[in-house]
Amino acid sequence: MDVKQLRYFVAVVNERGFSGAAAKLHLSQPSLSKAIRTLEGQIGFQLLERTTKRVDLTESGRVFYQRALHILAEMDIFEKEVNEVKAAGSGEVRLGMIESVKNWIPDVLGWYREEYPDMHVVLKEVLGRTDIEQALREYEVHICLTNEFIDTPDIVTAPLYKENLVLVMHADHPLANRIDVELKHLEGEPFIITSKGFQTRVNITEAFKKAEISMNVCYDADRFETILTLVEAGIGISIIPRNYIGGTVPETLAIRELDSPSLKRTVYLAYVKNRYRPPAVEALLQKMLSI
C-alpha cells in the first residue's frame, strides 16, 4: 500500500464513482479500478460496494477512508515542510500583516536587516480570519500580524500590544472644536467604514450597538489609506486604529479618543504551531514576541 493508492481511493469516494475520479486523476477507468482492487487485496477486506449507478463505502471502508484522509493531510504538510527546508537556502521570510502595524513594524525590520542582511523579506497584506488561516496553512506566509484571535489547535495567536480605534475627521469639521467627543455626537454623521468581514468593522458596529446609537454608513472601503483620503476630502468621518496614523497627525485631520471598550483591541502574532521554520525565520518570530 502506498500514498498513490490512498489518493486514488479517496478520489473515487469523493467523486462517488470511478468515471469522475478517473477523469480527475487523468487515468483510464480500467487502470483505476485495477488499482483499487489491488489495494483491497493488499489490506484483506472490501472497501467499496459497487453498483451500476454509484459506489458506496463498506462499513470497513468508512473507517479506512477517515484514516486515509488523515494520512494524506499529514503527507501534504510533510511535502510543504520539505519544500520549506529546500527553500530556506533562498533566504526569504514571508510576513503577513494588517495595515495598522505599518508604524510598528519598521523597528523590527530594522533590527532584522542588521542581524540577517542576506534575508529577503516579503510583506503581504492579509485581512480577515479566513484569509489569515489559509495563508498560514498553505505556507503563503511564515508569520502573520493580525487583530483576529484565531482559536484553533494548529495556530498560535500570541498577544503583542494593545491599540485604540479613534475618531478621524476633517480639521474643519464642527466636532473638531470639541475636546470631548462621545459616540452620541456621531449619530447621523456620514460614516466611512471598513468593508464587511474586517475586524475593525466588527469593533465599530459593536461600539455603536452597545451605545444604542444608529450609524449612518455611507461608504465602505477595504483600506485605511482610502478612508483617510475620503476623510481629508471632507466626504465623511471614520474610526480607525490610532497606530495607523502614526506620531504626527496631518494638519487636514483631527482625531479624538472615544470612550468605548469595543474600540480597544489587541494585535496578535499568529503562526502555525508545529511547523518547521528556518532559523532566520524563527529568529524574527522570537524577536516580535519579545518586544
Rank of each mutant, 00 (worst) to 15 (best):
D2W: 04
D2V: 05
V3Q: 12
Q5I: 02
L6Q: 12
A11Y: 06
V13Y: 02
G17R: 08
F18R: 11
A21P: 07
A23R: 15
K24E: 15
S28R: 07
Q29W: 09
S31P: 08
L32I: 00
I36M: 00
R37N: 14
G41T: 02
Q42E: 12
G44L: 10
L48R: 10
R50I: 13
K53V: 09
K53W: 09
L57R: 10
T58Q: 06
T58H: 05
E59A: 11
E59K: 11
E59V: 11
V63T: 05
Y65H: 07
R67T: 03
A68E: 04
E74K: 13
E74N: 11
D76Y: 02
E79G: 08
E79M: 12
E81L: 02
N83R: 12
N83H: 10
N83Q: 13
S90M: 11
E92T: 07
V93Y: 03
G96F: 00
M97G: 00
S100Y: 04
K102R: 09
N103H: 14
N103I: 07
L109H: 11
G110P: 05
R113T: 13
V122K: 03
L123F: 00
V126K: 07
L127H: 02
L127M: 06
G128M: 04
R129G: 06
T130P: 01
E133H: 06
E133M: 13
A135V: 11
Y139N: 15
H142V: 04
L145Q: 03
N147R: 01
N147C: 01
N147F: 01
E148C: 06
E148P: 02
E148N: 09
F149V: 13
F149M: 14
D151W: 14
P153Y: 06
I155E: 02
V156S: 08
V156H: 09
V156T: 12
P159Y: 07
L160C: 08
Y161D: 10
K162Y: 04
V166L: 03
L167I: 03
L167K: 03
V168R: 09
M169R: 10
A171V: 15
D172Q: 12
L175R: 13
L175G: 14
L175M: 15
H185D: 15
E187C: 15
E187G: 14
G188H: 05
F191T: 04
F191P: 01
T194I: 10
F198L: 09
F198H: 08
N203T: 13
T205D: 11
K209A: 14
K210T: 14
A211T: 08
E212A: 15
M215I: 13
M215P: 01
M215T: 05
N216Y: 15
N216K: 15
Y219H: 07
A221Q: 12
F224W: 15
E225C: 13
E225W: 14
T226Y: 05
T226G: 05
T229P: 06
A233C: 09
G234W: 03
G236K: 10
G236H: 11
I239A: 01
I245N: 03
P250D: 02
T252G: 13
R256C: 00
S260T: 07
P261C: 08
S262W: 05
L263E: 04
K264C: 11
T266P: 01
T266M: 07
Y271L: 08
K273R: 13
Y276M: 08
R277W: 10
R277T: 10
P278H: 02
P278W: 01
P279Q: 10
L285S: 01
Q286M: 01
K287G: 06
K287P: 05
M288S: 05
